[in-house]
Design a protein around this nucleic acid. Structure first.
Lengths: 230, 230
DNA sequence: GCCCGCTTGTCAGAGTTTTGTAAAAATGAC
DNA sequence: GTCATTTTTACAAAACTCTGACAAGCGGGC
């Protein structure tokens, strides 16, 4: 599964060159030439990294970054900019950028920075594997064997169920967005429709909740996603 | 618990200056002046970030980085170097560096890069959420979970409420215009009618003000917008 | 001080979006 | 092909946001 990059750059020539080189490095690249289009793509798809030119038609890179940060605090953003002075860099960082590369840049350097940022972004979602057994309420889950004990006795979790449950439990107490769920459980190139996740939550509530109408563990956070509470 | 930084730099003057500034930013800094000492400290203690000068007595920065990477693939490493050419950067990345700053550098830029790298290194460790926590008057807001404690007890903020509240708190003390609010909370192409914002302010006052007629925190600035005061 | 025009406060639904739920259809392993 | 699992579809229910009406408040000109 290739890491996905959203590349936003209005100089067509440069756009093509960078896109090609990133693809040679085995990334999947979506390339757009203006800020608004970038936001649409971002909302529509999932990426591991965004490369953002500062000077863009219709909406500059900083504004795009600020918008993106409203809904996703984690995705790395790398700024490209023509001007080299430190104020630009600082502005880039202030709006939530993670790295900064002045134009003209050395291509190899860009590729290296991309690699570093992608490495970071994958770190969170890579398997840690440490958690193999978990108890909450009167329930119990074994993530190795997928066996679980719920309110209606023993049951076996399916693969997807186990992945999703593990994700929620790993992040217990904090809401996990539907996007994060999709990234972690389904990966980057699958797009199950919106109701799929709900169905899994529905199952969990059937398995583990005393009262489905008043869930104690699997909370829905409207507009965001779900949250697990112990 | 403060993030811990290992700072390795042999110019005494610079070392002191950077150390002091990092400490002002509330990091705990361990400063050493040569590469071998850096490795000893690294084996002995736990850090969230390593700042590494390339030119060091006894053992250069690249070598230190390579050694560290043998036992820890995750800790972020920021290189400082006197020469500005791209080959140095590339070498830095190749031995496992995460970022690179050419000397002489702007101090603010260093601090920003440090912040970004630390943010990455803390990701996933529970403390992250505490930075997104805010208290004022007898109230408390957690922007990560959207939980809040107000004058009438606990409540959950909606997505929009959380965004608007965050904006106002980020800019506390200064008035935020209705236009800014629209831009930030609703995005670049959506403009709800004028009364909508007031409704949200109304809710905030209900949630957080002792006396709605004499708001202490959510002030209306006639002709402009609103201002949050602590 | 008093009036007038404009801005803000307040509220009650209407309208919209998101989530819950179940059943049917598709997928994929064997 | 068969079965278990996953995904889609459809609709219901819930939650949130927005609108429009009107009241109240503010500030400038007189």
């Amino acid at each position: 599964m290739k890491p996905r990059i959203l590349l936003v750059e209005d100089e067509e020539h440069l756009l093509e060159a960078v896109k090609m080189n990133l693809e040679l490095e085995d990334y999947e690249v979506v390339a757009v030439a203006d800020g608004e289009l970038a936001l649409l793509k971002f909302k529509d798809q999932r990426f591991n990294l965004i490369i953002l030119d500062v000077m863009l038609p219709r909406m500059d890179g900083y504004a795009v970054c600020e918008q993106i940060r409203l809904s996703d605090m984690d995705i790395p953003i790398l700024f490209l900019t023509a001007k080299g002075d430190s104020n630009d860099k600082i502005k880039g960082f202030k709006v939530g950028g993670d790295d900064y590369l002045p134009k003209p840049f050395n291509l190899e350097e860009l590729l290296l920075r991309v690699k570093v940022l992608i490495k970071h972004s994958l770190k969170g979602t890579a398997e840690e594997g440490s958690l193999k057994n978990y108890k909450f309420g009167g329930n119990e889950v074994n993530f190795l064997t997928h066996e679980a004990k719920g309110v209606n006795g023993d049951l076996l979790l399916t693969k997807r169920e186990a992945m999703l449950l593990k994700l929620l439990i790993d992040k217990k107490g904090e809401p996990v967005s539907r996007n994060q769920i999709l990234q972690y459980v389904w990966g980057y190139d699958v797009y199950p429709s919106t109701r799929t996740i709900d169905n899994f939550i529905l199952s969990f509530r059937k398995y583990f909740e005393e009262d489905m109408k008043e869930p104690q563990h699997f909370h829905s956070i409207r507009g965001i996603g779900y949250k697990f509470t112990d």
